[in-house]
Write a protein that binds this DNA or RNA. Structure first.
Lengths: 144, 144
DNA sequence: TTTATTTCGGATAAATTTATCCTATTTGTA
DNA sequence: TACAAATAGGATAAATTTATCCGAAATAAA
C-alpha cells in the first residue's frame, strides 16, 4: 500500500512523538533500532519530515529529533504520507490514467473512489497522539 | 496503490473481455495500443494471467488472447490482482510489520483494517463483465 | 576556542520494478 | 511439408526505490 520509506516515516514519527511527550529527544540510531529500519535510510526520511515541518531536528551535541508537545495532537497521518509519498495514493487514478474524472472515468473510477475516500478520511483524521498513546500503553507495537 | 504491472493487467483483461464478448481474439500489440502500455512488458503480464487461468492464449496463426464468454462474468478483479501483485495489498500489514494481528497490532492496525476490508470487498465483488460493459457503452475509458 | 557529538547532504551501491530485444516454439493454412 | 503468424520465454537494459558511506556543517560543553 505505502512505500517502505512511508512505512518507516510513520513509525519513526510515532516513536518520536512517544519520546517527545516525555521530553526526550531521539537519534536516528535509536529510532531505527526501535522501528527495525535501516539507519541511514531512515535518516533521509527524517530529513524529509523535517523539511515538511512534521518533526523538528536539533543539530549538534545533545541534539536529536523531537516534536513540539502541543503539535503531537494536531499532526495527522496524511501530513506524514504527503511528505514522503505524496498524495497520489488516495488522489491519483487507480489504473494510472492521466485523465480520470467523472466525465472521463477509468473502469474502476467509482469503485475505487469509495476505497480511496475511506483511506483519505482515515489518514486525515488519525493523529500522531492517538497512535503514540497506544504505543505507550503497550496496546500496539512498532516492530516484529 | 497497485503496481504498473497490475494496472496494465487489469486494463488488458478488460480489453480482452470486451473483445471476447464479440468473439474477437486480440494480440499483445492491439492490447498495448488500446490500453497505452509497453508491448513486451504487457505480453509478460499476459503470460502471468494465462498461468493463473484468468485469460486463455491461443498460439500460432490466427491465435491471440481471449476469455471464454461464460467466464467473463465470474472473473473478479481480485483474481487479476492476485495473479500479478499477490494479495499483500489488502492482506499484509499497513506498516510492514512481520507479525501484525489482533494480539500484536501495528499502530494503525484497526484503522487500516477498515480500508483494506473495503478494498478487498470491492476487488472480490467487481467482475470483469461489469467493467467491460461500461467500456462497450462508452461510459468509461482505458486510456488517456 | 577546541572538542565531541550530532544532523545534513552528496555520492554511490544494491535491489526491485519496469521495459526492451531476440530467439524458440506452436499452430493454422497453402 | 513448408511457410507464415502468433505466443512463450530467456537475456538484458533502464528506471526507480531502497540502502550505505563519508565528509561537511552545526552546536553544546569543557
Amino acid at each position: 500500500m505505502f512505500s517502505k520509506a512511508c512505512e518507516y516515516g510513520i513509525k519513526a514519527a510515532i516513536f518520536i512523538a512517544v519520546n517527545s511527550s516525555e521530553n526526550k529527544r531521539v537519534s536516528p540510531k535509536e529510532i531505527s533500532e526501535e522501528i527495525d529500519s535501516p539507519q541511514a535510510f531512515t535518516a533521509k526520511i527524517l530529513q524529509a519530515l523535517v523539511r515538511h515541518q512534521v518533526v523538528k531536528s536539533i543539530r549538534g551535541a545533545y541534539g536529536g529529533f523531537e516534536i513540539e508537545k502541543d503539535k503531537i495532537a494536531t499532526i495527522k497521518l496524511a501530513q506524514i504520507v504527503y511528505a514522503i509519498d505524496g498524495d497520489n495514493i488516495y488522489k491519483g487514478c487507480g489504473l494510472g490514467l492521466h485523465t480520470c474524472n467523472e466525465n472521463h472515468p477509468c473502469p474502476v473510477h467509482d469503485k475505487f473512489k469509495v476505497v480511496r475516500e475511506e483511506l483519505r478520511e482515515m489518514l486525515e483524521n488519525t493523529s500522531l497522539e492517538q497512535l503514540a498513546l497506544d504505543i505507550k500503553s503497550g496496546v500496539s507495537f512498532l516492530k516484529i
